[in-house]
């Protein structure tokens, strides 16, 4: 049972790539919006960006984008394992970015649980989660910047 090589080379296709990029951008923007900085530093004064200073709006959009990223990540992982792995391998920077992204997702999921009524996380664990989530995002952005500048791919052909 062999899958056509032409089909594999199209994966992840352009739609998935753009969906991933837009979702990560939205998550980053609304994530930073959880801190009271956009109004202080005039970003929310830019016409059309006033919503960035409305915490419940950014919170809701962050959740919507989180739903998208969870679906996309699950799709990309399974797609890689079932179709891509034979022909592509994760690069070192791919592993690093994947690990950081996993940390962001796990801390984010735990923060979603924290936000439910009746959650019982301890105060220091919550502080750790908040700082870890933010710290990992900052690290992810820096590593992504490095990969963009030095043209590092997530995968290489085997």
């Amino acid at each position: 049972m062999r899958v056509q090589q032409t089909a594999i080379s199209k994966v992840p296709n352009r739609t998935v790539r753009y969906a991933y990029l837009i979702t990560v951008f939205l998550l980053t923007l609304t994530g930073f919006g959880q801190m009271p900085i956009f109004k202080r530093y005039y970003i929310a004064d830019i016409p059309g960006l006033g919503w960035l200073a409305q915490f419940f709006v950014t919170h809701y959009i962050h959740y919507l984008a989180a739903i998208l990223i969870l679906a996309l990540v699950a799709y990309i992982i399974i797609d890689y394992l079932m179709l891509q792995k034979k022909n592509f391998r994760l690069t070192a920077t791919g592993y690093v970015r994947g690990a950081i992204l996993a940390g962001i997702l796990v801390s984010g999921i735990l923060l979603v649980i924290r936000n439910l009524a009746g959650s019982q996380f301890g105060p220091w664990f919550i502080i750790f989660l908040d700082l870890a989530h933010l710290g990992l995002v900052m690290t992810f952005l820096m590593v992504t910047g490095y990969c963009l500048i030095f043209k590092k791919q997530w995968t290489n052909a085997r």
């Binding site: 969870l70 799709y75 990309i76 797609d79 079932m82």
Partner: peptide
């Protein structure tokens, strides 16, 4: 929806395979 999202992603990938 957040719980169901990965299931949808997996289903889409399996469907494609």
């Amino acid at each position: 929806a957040m719980i169901l999202a990965p299931v949808a992603g997996i289903a889409a990938a399996v469907g494609k395979f």
